Computed example of a mutant assay.
Amino acid sequence: MLSTVLPQKGKLLISEPFMADPNFQRTVVLITENTEEGTVGYVLNQKSNYLLKDLIADCWDADFEVFIGGPVAPDTLHFVHKRPDLISGGADLGNGLYWGGDFEILKSEINNYRIKADEIKFFIGYSGWSKNQLEDELEMNAWIVSDKFNPDMLLENGEVNIWKEAVLNMGVKYAHITNFPQDPSLN
């Protein structure tokens, strides 16, 4: 299943269907940084029990869902958005997506109701791989790298099955794996 696309920023990592690590079972990770030192990304489809207003007192009416970005630094808050016109300082990921930006401006724009839930996604923690770790996992076929996706899909909230949608976007070669059971021993 190994893809030949390198996992650069703005690409997706789609976990193989039987990944045993509970942090990454049937997950889709958006890569935001890949350097010689390692790789950083955010799990897009593991919702936490928090809303933004639960974590940031200054955002008293912010009913934005917060996702678990990964097991690293779970006491930190991060965001990906498509509003560089309102939030300055974000890193361009391509496809109209930006990572981070000026947090004080972000809070002001949220409190003034200028940012909608489908324009931003919040994460507690992140996913990180040390130098060569992700490459090793790719060689073991733990991940599929994809650049075939609708950027709006990544910012969707609720019960959307992003993993299944991301796999289907890879084409017929991969579509059959969406039907694999999560636990093959139950088959």
Rank of each mutant, 00 (worst) to 15 (best):
F67W: 09
F67K: 03
F67L: 07
I68F: 09
I68T: 03
G69H: 11
G70S: 13
G70M: 08
G70C: 01
V72A: 07
A73S: 14
A73F: 04
A73V: 02
A73C: 02
P74D: 12
P74A: 15
D75G: 12
D75E: 13
T76L: 12
H78L: 06
F79R: 04
H81A: 04
H81G: 01
H81M: 02
K82M: 11
P84N: 11
P84L: 14
D85S: 15
D85P: 14
I87D: 08
S88F: 05
S88I: 03
S88L: 01
G90I: 10
A91S: 15
D92R: 13
D92Q: 15
L93G: 14
G94D: 10
G94I: 10
G94E: 14
N95W: 06
G96V: 06
G96H: 15
L97H: 14
Y98R: 03
Y98M: 01
Y98K: 05
Y98P: 01
W99M: 12
W99V: 04
G100I: 05
G100W: 06
G100S: 05
G100Q: 13
G100T: 06
D102P: 10
F103E: 00
F103M: 00
F103D: 00
F103H: 00
F103K: 02
I105L: 04
K107P: 00
K107G: 00
S108Q: 13
S108H: 01
S108E: 06
E109G: 07
I110S: 00
I110A: 02
N111V: 06
N111E: 05
N111A: 08
N112C: 05
N112K: 13
Y113T: 04
R114W: 00
I115G: 02
K116S: 02
D118N: 13
D118C: 09
D118S: 10
D118M: 14
E119I: 04
I120C: 03
I120M: 02
K121E: 11
